[in-house]
């Protein structure tokens, strides 16, 4: 549906290089990456608001690289919603209909439907400044959708909402996917958010795409240290790989599976590491004993840093487990993980 080929963009200090990906029709695609990686610029380029230096953007078979934004049929919803402050809610939503070739009555019908779908009835005559953040976002969504865009671009739609509204928005997105034919491209800096929404995506870093694939794939099998850091793989080690064994400074880790030539790193998710006060009889191939060097509170969870032969592992436990196991700094402890939890790259 949308294909982006070898896009190079220069914008002030930002440089996007060699951006290539494809999104299927009606797909939900998430572009992820830390702030400053060029995600919003990529969205604006797809919308036609920034001209790329080289490369092509196509919708289906039609090339749109040099089409002005108003002729693309691509709607954008910004992080700050960018509602027109001098227009009421209904005037904001109706805005795109002034330029649409669709007949007036059909447009108005669609507008009514969206007001209902997005739960905006009763707010029609209000001005944006009097709306809550969640309401503003729904108005922005309605305004973007009323013109029946082929593609809907969402710039960090969850970051400005409080957690309660985030859940609501996720449900809304699901609903929208069923109700519209638009292909949705969303940008986020938060991997857990992307994972919760699912679908396919790409991780960007420093103006380049690091990895493209399903969320599950990116989460389980990051292709670079940057991606594994981004998806929250705390245990990341440079290793020597030989005969299904990884060696970190004398510590031998059983991989139990083969790896590609040239792989030099292993990564283990902290939640895949099991802690125990005593040696366990288990099917887990790797077990080590070490000393707790640091315990860091992460709200609902605690990060336990354990040193095994000068190599530091990180595991996550709940507060309950922390108390039950009487974990404290300096305590000797056993840690276990399955060989399938080890990811090499």
């Amino acid at each position: 549906m949308i294909s982006v080929e070898n896009l190079h963009i220069d914008l002030g200090e930002f440089h996007l290089r060699d951006i290539t990906f494809e999104v299927e029709e009606n797909e939900f695609f998430i572009i992820m990456g830390p702030s400053g990686s060029g995600k919003t610029i990529l969205l604006e380029t797809i919308a036609g608001l920034i001209q790329p230096k080289t490369g092509r953007i196509k919708i289906g078979a039609e090339e749109i690289t040099h089409l002005p934004p108003e002729k693309r049929g691509i709607s954008i919803v910004y992080q700050d919603y960018a509602l027109f402050p001098h227009l009421t809610v209904v005037e904001n939503i109706r805005y795109g209909l002034h330029f649409s070739k669709e007949n007036k009555a059909a447009g108005e019908n669609h507008l009514r439907e969206l007001l209902t779908l997005l739960n905006l009835e009763g707010l029609e005559r209000r001005y944006p400044e009097t709306l809550s953040g969640g309401e503003q976002q729904r108005v922005a969504m309605a305004r973007a959708l009323v013109v029946n865009p082929k593609i809907l671009l969402l710039d960090e739609p969850l970051s400005a909402l409080d957690p309660r509204l985030r859940e609501e928005f996720r449900l809304l997105l699901k609903q929208l996917q069923q109700n519209t034919t638009a292909t949705i491209l969303m940008v986020t800096h938060d991997f857990s958010e992307a994972l919760a929404l699912g679908g396919r995506g790409a991780v960007m870093n420093d103006g380049r795409i690091e990895q493209t694939g399903s969320m599950e794939d990116i989460f389980q099998r990051p292709v670079s240290t940057m991606v594994s850091n981004f998806v929250g793989m705390k245990n990341l080690f440079a290793v020597t790989l030989k005969n299904e064994t990884a060696t970190i400074e004398g510590l031998q880790i059983q991989l139990g599976h083969s790896y590609r030539d040239g792989h030099r790193f292993i990564a283990i998710r902290p939640e895949d590491i099991v802690l125990s006060a005593e040696q366990l009889q288990s099917s887990m191939r790797n077990s080590f004993s070490g000393q707790i060097v640091r315990i860091i509170s992460q709200g609902f969870y605690y990060e336990i840093h354990i040193e095994v032969n000068k190599t530091s592992f990180c595991a996550l436990v709940t507060k309950g487990a922390l108390v039950e196991m009487e974990l404290q700094e300096g305590k000797e402890i056993f840690l276990f993980f399955k060989s399938t939890a080890i990811h090499t790259f």
Partner: peptide, 27 residues
């Protein structure tokens, strides 16, 4: 006037001229 308002207007089908008179000028 945030350039984003103009961007949104363009993406909704308004030419730069329409955008100026409907969004930028009134603000």
């Amino acid at each position: 006037v945030s350039p984003r308002l103009e961007n949104v207007s363009r993406s909704l089908g308004a030419s730069m001229t329409s955008t100026f008179f409907r969004i930028t000028f009134p603000l």
